[in-house]
Simulated assay, not measured.
Amino acid sequence: MDLLSHLGLKYPLLQAPMAGVSTPEMAAAVSNAGGLGALGLGAAGVDGARRMLRATRALTDRVINANVFCHAPAMRDADVEADWLTALAPQFARFGAKPPEALHEIYRSFAVDRAMCDMLIEEAPGVVSLHFGLPDPRWIGALQAAGNLVFASATSLAEARACVAAGVDAIVAQGIEAGGHRGVFEPDAEDACLPVLTLVHQITAACDLPVIAAGGLMEGRDVARALAAGAVAAQLGTAFLDCPESAADAGYRAALRDVELGPPVLTKAISGRAARAVPNAFVTLGQGLSQQVPDYPVTYDAGKALNAAAKAAGDSGFGAHWAGSGLRRLRQGSAAEILQQIAEELMQAQR
């Protein structure tokens, strides 16, 4: 299958879904400009996801990528959760607040959410992408029968082979450089931490599916290298973080621009799963804690509460400031302008 032609793309450029940051305006702008725009729906719930999809559809008639989380439901441990809240209590006190009395599993995994699957079948965005794992293959088939292509993230060759066996249409090869959450299927297993180009080489050599490169890609020359490695397209997220269509708040944008904070690093402290973030105060705090981190997304409930307390006190250093390794090449301009810049750089790199 010629993936780009099937999707009607002018450029082999995909905007990463980025739950909490991507907006209907961003997704529509990228798709209208010739790339593939995306919405991160893993935290939205069925009704919120439907509203986001319909808001995007009001701005474009082109294909949209609707991304969902397929993590295993949390394994709850009351003692671990209580210890985590106790460890965070001094930080809450700094901001004149108390930690929550209990934590909650704030996101429902798509893998057990048939209502979300039915909604995506009804709305038919054109692409549905999966992160953290895979649902029942019959759900994948139902999404495809409704007119959607199904993409799935893989951080290793073993995960890519599982994606092939499940019947997806394309694999998003997520290198260790990527911002936000690692898409590993088993968060407690050893992570090979493969760079994106190495991962693309491995998957394209072993799997007969289109491969989309993701991780640390910021410029046209980065995309050219990914295509030369065998990818059919590249997915970029950090490149779009600071555009006007982004939902990143002022504190997030300030952290992205603050060179004193250093390069993005992996942390579990914010959400409970490894994710690459700007090393703000929350990341630094997590590095100093020895307590066991509760399961995702239970930890995120605590993280969001601490961020809210900090923001109320005027401190923006406790947000989930996800970013990839290419952060210091941060882009400026509208989403459409950024896409066009990268496309022009790609054409120059391929001459």
Rank of each mutant, 00 (worst) to 15 (best):
G40Y: 05
G35C: 07
A44N: 06
D118I: 00
A152D: 10
M75Q: 14
L289S: 01
S246P: 11
A145Q: 15
R108N: 11
V259S: 14
V232C: 13
Q350R: 15
C163W: 13
A145I: 00
V30R: 05
G8H: 06
I64Q: 10
V30M: 11
D113R: 11
A320Q: 05
I140A: 10
G220L: 11
L143N: 07
N32V: 08
A19K: 05
L7A: 08
N307V: 00
S109Q: 12
N280P: 02
Y296G: 13
M26R: 10
G288R: 15
A213G: 07
Q174F: 04
L330W: 05
I338K: 01
A228I: 03
A165G: 12
E159S: 08
L346P: 12
P73R: 05
A336V: 06
L53F: 05
V164L: 15
C207F: 07
V112H: 13
S129R: 06
G230F: 01
V150H: 12
A336C: 05
G262F: 02
L4C: 11
N307R: 01
L4Q: 12
A349G: 06
L36E: 14
A160T: 07
Q348W: 12
Y11H: 15
Y252H: 14
A226R: 10
T198D: 13
R225E: 14
G220I: 06
A228M: 08
L36C: 13
Y300V: 07
E25W: 09
Q15P: 13
V127K: 12
A78Y: 00
R328D: 15
N67G: 01
R108C: 13
V68K: 07
V46A: 04
A234K: 02
I212N: 02
F240I: 09
T23P: 10
L197M: 03
L289M: 08
A28I: 06
E159I: 12
V80D: 03
R182E: 05
D47L: 11
M347G: 06
G230C: 01
R329Y: 10
V200P: 12
T56W: 03
A248Y: 04
D315Y: 01
